[in-house]
C-alpha cells in the first residue's frame, strides 16, 4: 500500500528516522543544507539554528511538518523552533531524557508517532537497521584507510535522514575503495563543522579524521520497534550527561588509535562551554576551533589545523 502523498518531515537534530519512515513520512534533516547555504540570518546566535529557522519561516525549505529536538542536544532550537512553529508550520517538540530513562523516551516516541499519524510500515524499522549496519561498515573502512574521511563523513552525516528515501540511499552507499595513508589519525568531536569542505581541508593538510563523533551517533542507534528504539537511543551521547559522553569517547578514541583530537565548536552554541572539561578529561593533544557562518574552511582555521599537524608530528 502506498500513499499518494508522503509527508516531508523536517527535523532539527537527531530524531529516530526509522520511526518517521515507519509512519510513512520522509525525514529531512534541515541541517544538511546549512554548510552550502548562502543565507546570512539577521537575528542569530548559532548560525546552524538561525539559518534553518529563517529558511523555514520564509518557506525556503519545503516541509509539511517539523520535529524540533528541544530537550537534549541543541538548546537554541527550542526558541528557533517556536519561531518556525509561529510561522504556521505544524511542529512537534521532542525531548530526550538527560538521565537515559527508557520509559520516558518510549513515551516521547509514542507521542511523536501520534503526531506523525501512527506507524503504517513497521518493516521500515528493520530496513533502516540494516542500512545502519552498512553505515558502520563504511565507518570501519574509513578507519582502515579503505575510503577517505571526507567520503565517509558525507555518508555518515546523511544517516540522520537517509536522504528521505531508503532505496536511493542504499544505492548511494556503493563507494569505490582505495588505499589511504593514515598519517596523523585524529578524531573530530563536537557538532559537525559548518564548513562544507572541512574534511577535505584536513585531509589536504595530512590530518586523517578517523572518527566523527556526531555522525557516528547517526549509525549507532536503531531498533525493530518503538521499545527497542527507546532502549538504544537513550544512549544517544549528545543528549546525556558529559560524564556519559566522555566515557563513551574515551573508549572510542582508544579503539580508533587516534593521535589527537579536534574539538569543533560553533559560535554561540552551549557546547562551547564543554571545551575545558573535554580537555581535562581526554588525554590527547587537542585543538579547539570555532566556526560561525557557513562556507569554505577559512584560512585562519587551516592555519590552526596545519599547526596541529606539526604538533602531532613532533609528539
Amino acid at each position: 500500500m502506498h500513499r499518494a502523498h508522503v509527508s516531508k518531515i523536517g527535523m532539527t537534530a537527531l530524531v529516530p528516522p526509522e520511526l518517521i519512515f515507519a509512519c510513512a513520512g520522509e525525514p529531512f534533516d534541515v541541517n544538511n543544507i546549512i554548510p552550502a547555504s548562502k543565507n546570512y540570518p539577521k537575528n542569530k546566535l548559532c548560525a546552524w539554528t538561525a539559518i534553518w529557522r529563517e529558511m523555514l519561516v520564509k518557506r525556503e525549505i519545503k516541509i509539511d511538518s517539523l520535529i524540533v529536538v528541544a530537550g537534549g542536544d541543541c538548546h537554541n532550537a527550542l526558541v528557533d523552533g517556536q519561531k518556525a512553529a509561529m510561522s504556521g508550520i505544524p511542529t512537534h517538540f521532542f525531548f530526550y531524557p538527560f538521565d537515559g530513562d527508557v520509559q520516558y523516551l518510549e513515551s516521547q516516541l509514542h507521542k511523536l508517532s501520534s503526531f506523525l499519524g501512527n506507524i503504517e510500515y513497521p518493516e521500515k524499522f528493520r530496513d533502516v537497521k540494516a542500512l545502519k549496519k552498512l553505515g558502520r561498515k563504511i565507518d570501519n573502512k574509513r578507519l582502515n584507510g579503505k575510503i577517505s574521511s571526507s567520503e565517509a563523513f558525507r555518508i555518515l552525516v546523511s544517516f540522520s535522514d537517509l536522504m528521505g528515501d531508503l532505496d536511493r540511499f542504499r544505492n548511494a552507499l556503493d563507494i569505490k575503495e582505495g588505499n589511504i595513508a593514515l598519517n596523523n589519525r585524529v578524531a573530530l568531536i563536537g557538532v559537525p563543522p559548518i564548513y562544507h569542505d572541512f574534511h577535505e581541508a584536513a585531509q589536504s593538510l595530512d590530518l586523517q579524521i578517523v572518527f566523527d563523533e556526531l555522525p557516528y551517533e547517526f549509525v549507532r542507534h536503531s531498533g525493530d520497534d518503538i521499545n527497542e528504539v527507546a532502549l538504544d537511543y537513550c544512549n544517544y551521547t549528545f543528549a546525556r550527561s558529559l560524564d556519559f559522553r566522555i566515557e563513551f569517547l574515551q573508549k572510542e578514541l582508544e579503539k580508533r588509535k587516534v593521535e589527537g583530537v579536534i574539538h569543533y565548536t560553533q559560535f554561540a552554541c552551549h557546547h562551547v562551554l564543554e571545551d575545558e572539561i573535554l580537555r581535562a578529561k581526554l588525554d590527547y593533544p587537542m585543538l579547539t576551533i570555532q566556526g560561525d557562518l557557513p562556507g569554505k574552511t577559512p584560512q585562519q582555521i587551516k592555519l590552526r589545523l596545519e599547526a596541529f599537524r606539526e604538533v602531532l608530528e613532533r609528539s
Binding site: R279, M286, L287, T288, Q300, L303, R304, A307, V311, S315
Partner: peptide, 14 residues
Amino acid sequence: DTKVIDVKSNNFII
C-alpha cells in the same frame, strides 16, 4: 592577530 601558545599542553588560542 594575537596568538597565545601554551607550550606545555600544546594548546594555542588565536
